[in-house]
């Protein structure tokens, strides 16, 4: 069956390499977490959280560190799916669904198309900028600073009564109708802008040929 879908050998290698990496990273973590779970050190929810966190951080690191742009994009998918898992953990199924649909289905596909349309096929490896060391230092300081601040704060007691999935639509269109409309307009404008940006070159060239013909 696979000979009917002739995949490029490069893509094949990507899958194999990615699978190997995921297995190498995830397997020990899963094993450790399972061990902790059975030893009653952590609850099931915590195990899911740490699993998702591992996927997210590993994917994020992969997407900013991998030299090959296609690898980076695929690694981003892992991160976004992990984030969807976090949303599920936070009892917001709707957002998790949206996350999977919009990011996994839309944004990543769009990114891959953009990669294809630019010169990725010729030169998939892009070197990083010259300020990479500085960026690493600053990002490290920033991250530790944020963590310090968040640990420092007193967050009070959890007091949440969640909005059931069935009421979600009614709430959002009744209480937030104006923001929804504004976002709709924003989307419309962004779409138009993207369309105009992508088309202008051909539009501008057409009249010139007509003039030349006349």
């Amino acid at each position: 069956m696979f000979d009917r879908l002739p995949l490029p050998s490069q893509f094949d290698r990507t899958i194999v390499a990615g699978g190997t990496v995921v297995a190498l990273v995830a397997l020990p973590v899963v094993l450790v977490l399972l061990a902790l779970l059975f030893a009653d050190q952590i609850s099931a929810a915590e195990m899911v959280f740490f699993l998702a966190a591992t996927v997210i951080l590993a994917g994020a690191l992969g997407s900013v560190l991998l030299p090959n742009v296609v690898h980076a994009a695929l690694s981003l998918v892992a991160t976004l799916l992990g984030v969807a898992g976090i949303y599920l953990l936070l009892l917001t199924e709707f957002i998790a669904l949206v996350q999977v649909l919009v990011y996994g289905g839309g944004v990543v596909i769009l990114l891959l198309f953009a990669l294809m349309l630019t010169n990725v096929a010729d030169d998939p490896v892009v070197s990083d900028g010259s300020q990479k060391p500085f960026a690493m230092i600053v990002a490290a300081i920033m991250g530790s600073l944020f963590i310090a601040v968040m640990l420092d704060a007193q967050w009070g007691n959890p007091a949440a009564t969640l909005v059931p999935f069935s009421e979600f639509g009614a709430r959002i269109f009744r209480d937030f109708s104006i923001p929804v409309i504004v976002v709709a307009i924003l989307l419309d404008i962004a779409l138009t802008g993207a369309f105009v940006n992508a088309r202008t070159a051909e539009e501008a060239s057409e009249p010139r040929t007509e003039e030349a013909a006349a």
Partner: peptide, 11 residues
Amino acid sequence: LGMAVGVVALT
């Protein structure tokens, strides 16, 4: 990068 340094400094 400049912006990040600024954010860190402000924080």
